[in-house]
Design a protein around this nucleic acid. Structure first.
Length: 750
RNA sequence: GGGCGCGUAGCUCAGCGGUAGAGCACUGUGUUGACAUCGCAGGGGUCACUGGUUCGAUCCCAGUCGUGCCCACCA
């Protein structure tokens, strides 16, 4: 063995060997154990969070596999509708082209091309991380079998009345020109203004002052509301007002929605541009006047002077106009929550469109029950509160997106606008009994990416076919994921799993924290604080790191600051720590907390730990070369106090380790291994063995050699789930002296 | 406005009803073979604050302060 631990030398070959030998496929017998890999974006690459998550999943899978379970870790990737489409559109934009110039077919082809080009980045990363996934069954959400499952679910839900098409307000992203679900809208507090505007009374007896944060929407007002209990405005209810700039007359109505304490106590009601106003409008049967185009410029329902203006420019001009008309009473500074699209960052508009929805309440009910009854358990437990609070207030799910990349909605329209849903056009015709000569056109929209993700636990196993894998591995055992996608993904998998399999998709949801940088900041390209897991494994020079962090920035002016911070934090770049050290670090960071700070000092310490283990093995192997090794019984007969002590300590550690793995405390598991290896096996037993090997009888020496080897063997197996490479590499050298039959530590019993 | 979490050694974090632990950092010291990616020895904390329960609280309960995240329709 080399004197120093060099991860690169030992990590290279083992993964290929494991994969070639088919060790990652679930064993034909044994109780099943299954984890679904949360599918990363197909064209993306794995970041630290993914690597962290993979470490947890791989450690659990390897551990169960060694315990004799038929373990399946199901891999795959997600088509990630909006994200992927945006990437490709940006590439086109760089060439001065737009997707509309290409047309739908060519654009989708371009996306597939990009998918192929970005290639198997994720696959290669997973391999470098040592992930023991079942490559033979790798899935992509847009593979035909999975797409078939998507259509099947859509048709079925439609037939059962749980999918419907409706015209109502949605969150509209005016930049991406698509509807978004509630979850894809993030509200942030921003500084805004509250404009107080006079609406003259029709009877000429003065005016009413309304307060609004969005004056441009007044062009679509169809009422002004006051609180029914407000004595100031009691007489006003039923009267009419003149809506400035439009010449329209609108009624004053009374509605509980209005808080008399806020603003002036009078609220302008714009049913087509505000979710609350929409509700009020429904209650009072108000007209909905849409004044915006899909790109958030004013449309022809607006007075001519404002048509075609962007919403924010229109706001400026409207306020200006009101001022000259003497209708602007005052303007106040006002903090408000502004809704923005999570991908585009654009201010989202409540917008009246036709969209597809999943009627969610009937699906949510059993999903709530499944967690209440304990058939699904969150770890740590208190995440169930988050789950429940969302599920109890869940709104219908808008599933249509005005994108080109994704699963096309399996619905067709006849010339009269009737809807026909089916697995394909002919199926739709058959179901509706429509002749072949009636022309049908398919809905242009695609489904929300999460619609297909929701089916992942069974679509990847072959559903709707009744496959052996499906029967064997569904329900799966553990879902490992971050708390950021409990709503997006976890809840929806539970709902769909119960609906289409009649059983929960998994028994345990292990929620881990999110990896941040050493200062507790979220890692992001724009902050320039991203670490690539592969750079921690292979190392990277300072200049390369800086280049990586500053190239392709959305805000290039940040580059100097990023460079400075990077130079300060990594003056010598990043040394190569190896996969095992990285994995051990991730395991030790897997505490119950919510955010996790990744610091270089930590991984350095664990790289040293690898070296410690390496050298302990070197010592042990050096002692046995050409020497007699006692058999097990023989060794027991000649065991001294120290041997008994280390045996007892190992047994204790092993039992703690099991307990910690059972309870998903990989941090404690890692610590138990670290403590035993360093503070007991190395510091004490190895030291004592030196005198035993020097002064003992030949029998005692042979017994000591047996114990040295035997503990090392078991220690390596115990450490293998977290550090697969170094343990395999050392263990291979123990096979002969211990007379072990197996070919790999992966296949050794736990 | 609700919900969840956190506040323990200089830093990052474990822990637990019985007079505090790890890694890193720090101090001193040690190189003829397991390991300087190391060994040995050591310094350092009134476990945010206040009150309560208890024989006993860092740990349980109530409140306060600080801090972070999530959800929510106040125009």
């Amino acid at each position: 063995m080399e004197k120093s631990y060099r991860p690169r030398n030992i990590e290279e070959g083992w993964y290929r060997r494991w994969e070639e030998q088919g060790y990652f496929a679930p064993a034909p017998q044994g109780d099943s154990y299954c984890i679904m890999l949360p599918p990363p974006n197909v064209t993306g690459s794995l970041h630290m969070g993914h690597a962290f998550q993979c470490t947890i999943m791989d450690a659990l899978t390897r551990w169960r596999r060694m315990q004799g379970r038929s373990a399946l870790w199901q891999p795959g990737v997600d088509h990630a509708g909006i994200a992927t489409q945006m990437v490709v559109e940006r590439q086109l934009a760089a060439e001065g082209k737009s997707r509309h110039e290409l047309g739908r077919e060519a654009f989708v082809e371009a996306v597939w091309g990009w998918k192929d080009q970005s290639g198997d980045t994720i696959g290669n990363q997973l391999r470098r991380l040592g992930a023991s996934v079942d490559w033979d069954h790798h899935c992509f959400t847009m593979d035909e079998p999975l797409s078939h499952a998507v259509r099947k679910v859509f048709v079925s839900l439609f037939q059962d009345g749980l999918i419907y098409r409706g015209k109502r307000l949605v969150n509209w992203d005016p930049q991406l020109h698509t509807a978004l679900s509630d979850l894809e809208v993030l509200s942030t507090e921003e500084n805004g203004k509250l404009w107080h505007i006079r609406y003259p009374r029709e009877d000429g007896r003065g005016d009413v002052v309304v307060a609004t944060t969005r004056p441009e929407t007044m062009l679509g007002d169809t009422a002004v509301a006051v609180s029914p209990d407000d004595p100031r405005y009691r007489d006003l209810v039923g009267e009419f007002l003149e809506l400035p700039l439009t010449g329209r007359r609108i009624p004053v109505i009374a509605d509980d929605y209005v808080d008399p304490e806020f603003g002036t106590g009078c609220v302008k009601i714009t049913p087509a541009h505000d979710f609350n106003d929409y509700e009020v409008g429904q209650r009072h049967d108000l007209e909905q006047i849409n004044v915006l185009n899909p790109d958030a410029t004013l449309n022809d329902n607006a007075p001519e002077a404002f048509r075609g203006l962007d919403r924010f420019e229109a706001r400026k001009q409207i306020v200006e106009k009101l001022k000259t008309l003497g209708l602007l009473e005052k303007v106040e500074d006002h903090k408000m929550m502004v809704p923005r699209g999570d991908r585009s960052g654009e201010v989202v508009e409540p917008y009246l469109t036709d969209q597809w929805y999943v009627k969610i309440a009937p699906l949510a009910e059993p999903a709530i029950e499944a967690v209440e009854s304990g058939r699904i358990r969150f770890v740590p437990e208190n995440w169930d509160k988050t789950y429940f609070s969302w599920m109890h207030n869940i709104q219908d799910w808008c599933i249509s997106r005005q994108l080109w990349w994704g699963h096309r909605i399996p619905a067709w329209y006849d010339p009269d606008g009737n809807i026909h849903v089916g697995m394909d056009e002919s199926d739709a015709r058959r179901r509706s009994g429509i002749d072949g000569d009636v022309p049908l056109s398919q809905d242009e929209d695609v489904l929300d990416t999460w619609f297909s993700s929701a089916l992942w636990p069974f679509s990847t196993l072959g559903w709707p076919e009744d496959t052996d894998r499906l029967r064997r591995f569904y329900p799966t055992d553990v879902l490992v994921t971050g708390f950021d996608i409990i709503f997006f993904w976890v809840a929806r998998m539970i709902m769909m799993g119960l609906r289409f399999r009649g059983e929960v998709p998994f028994h345990t949801v292990y929620i881990h924290g999110l990896i941040h940088d050493g200062h507790g900041q979220k890692m992001s390209k724009s902050k320039g604080n991203v670490l690539d897991p592969l750079d921690l494994i292979d190392g990277i020079g300072l200049d390369d790191l800086i280049a990586k962090r500053t190239e392709g920035l959305m805000q290039p002016h940040m580059a100097p600051a990023i460079e400075k911070a990077t130079r300060k934090e990594f003056p010598d770049g990043i040394p190569a720590f190896g996969t095992d050290a990285l994995r051990f670090t991730f395991a030790s960071l897997a505490t119950t907390g919510r955010d996790i700070r990744f610091e270089l000092g930590r991984i350095e310490g664990y790289r040293n730990f690898c070296n410690k283990l390496w050298n302990a093995a070197r010592y042990v192997l050096g002692q046995i070369e050409g020497q007699a090794i006692a058999g097990e019984t023989e060794a027991a007969n000649h065991a001294g106090e120290v041997d008994l002590w280390i045996e007892a300590r190992f047994a204790e550690m092993q039992s703690q380790l099991n307990h910690h793995l059972e309870s998903f405390r990989l941090d404690l598991a890692a610590q138990a291994l670290y403590d035993f290896t360093w503070n007991e096996y190395c510091d004490w037993y190895l030291e004592f063995s030196k005198s035993a090997l020097h002064d003992g009888t030949p029998e005692q020496q042979a017994a000591t050699r047996r114990t040295l080897l035997s503990i090392l063997d078991r220690l390596l197996r115990a450490t293998h789930p977290i550090m697969p490479f170094i343990t395999e590499d050392i263990w291979q050298r123990l096979r002969e002296p211990l007379g072990i039959e197996g070919e790999s530590i992966m296949k050794q019993p736990w």
